[in-house]
Design a protein around this nucleic acid. Structure first.
Lengths: 211, 211
DNA sequence: ACATCACGTGACTTCAAGTCACGACAGCAT
DNA sequence: ATGCTGTCGTGACTTGAAGTCACGTGATGT
């Protein structure tokens, strides 16, 4: 699995060669097929392992958790790019799974993401609702989806700048602007799904809201 | 191109056979390679054509345009699913391009989307800013990205329910709930990027906002 | 000591993308 | 009318990677 993960991360899905993975391990290609059945299935396992290695939203220091829903989000957004540097391999796998395979595999991946919720999104949204930091008149499903969409894409944008320049819209992101972007992004998200006047976050929102 | 479009739409990228496309046309496989160079390049052309066939955001009846930014959005969200029924082929191609190919191709696709802006997103956001319906303190790039992310994903969710059940999060979407979903989605988006008190949309937001 | 079995092996098969030498044909010049 | 040239379609061929399978080998149990 380690060898396969590294190989996929380095070459992408299409250009990865099962024979090369076997060679690197000093075993026969046939053995890999005996264990995993197909290249697709091998990748799916690799993907699952990579995704499971990521932290859940609520795996944060207690003081961050105390600070509330949006501070937890900020914590992760800031950390994303650091983590990409330290350990880019699982992120690359994650990227491949999301955009670099065919639809049949993508369907499997989605099934996995829905059934396992490896990032603990639902739990996280419940947490936000409990603290009354999120709009309770929205369906929870919609909030989860929106977090999903926006955070995933925003992270993609941050990290593809590192991993794969030119893959997404904003290419040559200047590092000093990232902080500001995260700030803006959170403010947008907070207005979108945040409760009327979130106790904690009010201070930050003031800047842009004058009523 | 027509034949290739249909074939890709029906079989997906991986399972599409260049030989079959040639067969359907009664020409030799070599001819296709002579024109397009590779399967990738053929798909890229097919994708471009499909995407260009979609309307731009501002291609709406004058009265909808008059009604403002968020009404234009609503117009398109509602129409999405109708159009998927009438003419599902280009949507399927669009889906394949976004999720069903490898990263090398995806990069080309992104380059195309950025350089052509085939949906006229930037123009649309400018329109919204001019009418003072959007927050002018946000960078225009960020607004475009958010529209991009959220609308694309929301449409994906609506239309994959038709085209590819199980590909995305919300599978068995009940048809009568779609209208309500669109409503909620727009309200979220409006709070996220809409100006303080959008003249037109205020009425609609009331329902869920009690202050 | 022998039988059984699980498992790794690598040569082999399959299959699809991509190549290329050839020939047909159209347009043009003599 | 004849011959020349360049374009383009052709399909048999090459390449290369996924996936298969009959066999061997070493471990385990009796």
């Amino acid at each position: 699995m380690d060898a396969a993960t590294r190989h996929f991360a380095e070459h992408g899905y299409e250009d990865a060669r099962v024979a090369d993975i076997a060679l690197a391990l000093g075993i026969a290609k046939g053995s890999i097929f005996q264990h995993f059945g197909s290249k697709d299935a091998l990748f799916l396992e690799v993907y699952k392992r990579a995704v499971r290695s990521f932290s859940k939203y609520l795996d944060v220091p207690p003081e961050v958790r105390e600070a509330g829903f949006f501070e937890v989000l900020r914590y992760w957004l800031i950390r994303t790019e650091h983590m990409v540097h330290e350990d880019w391999i699982p992120y690359r796998i994650y990227l491949l799974g999301n955009y670099g395979t065919d639809l049949a595999l993508k369907r499997e991946i989605n099934r996995f993401l829905i059934s396992e919720d490896p990032y603990g999104r639902v739990e996280f949204v419940r947490f936000g609702l409990q603290r009354r930091e999120l709009r309770d008149e929205l369906e929870i499903e919609l909030i989860v989806s929106i977090i999903d969409w926006m955070v995933e894409r925003f992270q993609d944008a941050l990290l593809t700048a590192e991993l794969d320049p030119g893959l997404f819209r904003r290419q040559g992101e200047l590092p000093e602007k990232k902080e500001a972007r995260i700030q803006q992004f959170l403010s947008v998200l907070e207005r979108a799904i945040g409760a009327e006047r979130p106790a904690f976050a009010a201070k930050r929102v003031q800047r842009s809201e004058r009523r």
